[in-house]
Amino acid sequence: MPSCFRVIGRCLAVGLLSLGVPLGAQAHPHGWIDLSVRLILDDQGRVEALHQRWRMDPFYSLVLLEELGRAEGDEPMEARLDQLGLEIRDTLATQGYFTELSRDGEPLALGEVSEYTVMERGGRVEFIFLLPLAEPRPLGEATLRYQVFDPTYYIEVVHEADDRAPREDALVVASAYDCETRILPADPDPAKVAQAARLDITDEAPDGLGRYFAETGEIQCRF
């Protein structure tokens, strides 16, 4: 059973190299995740959780599924995907689930993920999970912002898009309240772009580089 997620990244590198794909000259990132987010509000207008769906890029999904298929044992693929989900969850827990959340600039503490699943759909591996806040927080008229990113920018995380524009269902609010949402594109400093371009597969990116390339989701509701 593949036991990594590096957090997704190193597995991807090893898998591609095993297929004879030359990576040494490639710059970061080495793969991507298509992201969808659903904000969960309770009946008091408090923020409870972010429901996230991550769709691994097609090539990395192929590598993962082939590795799972070659793993020793007679477990069905569904059980192997379940085990992979556990490993992904446990690894991401040490990385803050790649997620930063704030209310009018004030960071909000996140809880632990207990609801998650991994599945294959349309040839792509999907990791779906419910990321709760440490405790529900009132939103009021404040603006909620989040970013989801790999700190090392080994993997790029982008919202689901059509024709390079985020899809309407890439960020939604699960509530009866009147809420507005928008997804702001990343606007990295040219120096950060150049820094990322100089990194190849053998380099360790400085922790936090991914933040400069992260899209920002914004939600504001009227109660």
Rank of each mutant, 00 (worst) to 15 (best):
E78T: 14
D189F: 09
G15K: 04
V63H: 02
V157M: 07
T152L: 05
G111N: 05
A186V: 02
A196F: 09
E112L: 11
L12Y: 00
A161D: 14
Q195V: 03
M119R: 11
R46Q: 13
L130G: 05
V7F: 12
L199I: 10
G140L: 15
I8C: 09
L130F: 05
R53W: 05
R211N: 08
D90Y: 14
E78H: 11
E48K: 11
M77T: 09
S3A: 11
E180P: 03
I128A: 08
L23Y: 08
K192R: 15
C4A: 13
P22V: 01
V193P: 02
Q26F: 10
L184E: 12
R164C: 13
P185D: 14
G85T: 09
D34F: 05
H30T: 02
P190E: 14
G208A: 08
L65E: 04
G9V: 05
E160W: 07
L65Q: 06
L86M: 10
V158Q: 08
S102E: 15
C11Y: 00
V113T: 04
F223T: 11
A49P: 15
A205I: 05
P132D: 04
H159N: 04
L81Q: 00
R121K: 11
A13F: 02
H30P: 12
H51E: 04
Y146R: 03
D207M: 05
A161P: 11
L16I: 00
L50V: 00
R38G: 09
T143G: 11
E120P: 14
P76M: 06
L144M: 01
G123H: 03
L39M: 11
L68A: 10
R70F: 07
I40N: 08
K192N: 10
A176K: 12
T143M: 07
A25W: 06
G69Q: 04
T94V: 09
G111V: 07
R137C: 13
Y212M: 00
V37S: 05
D189M: 11
M1P: 14
F129I: 03
G122N: 04
I219T: 10
A176I: 10
L108I: 02
G73Q: 00
F129S: 02
H159R: 03
I33G: 09
R167I: 07
H159I: 07
I128R: 12
R124H: 13
L23I: 09
R121P: 14
L65M: 08
E126K: 04
I33F: 05
Y153G: 06
G85E: 05
G123W: 01
G45R: 06
I40Y: 06
W54N: 03
D162K: 13
E120L: 12
P29N: 10
G140P: 08
V63F: 01
Y154I: 03
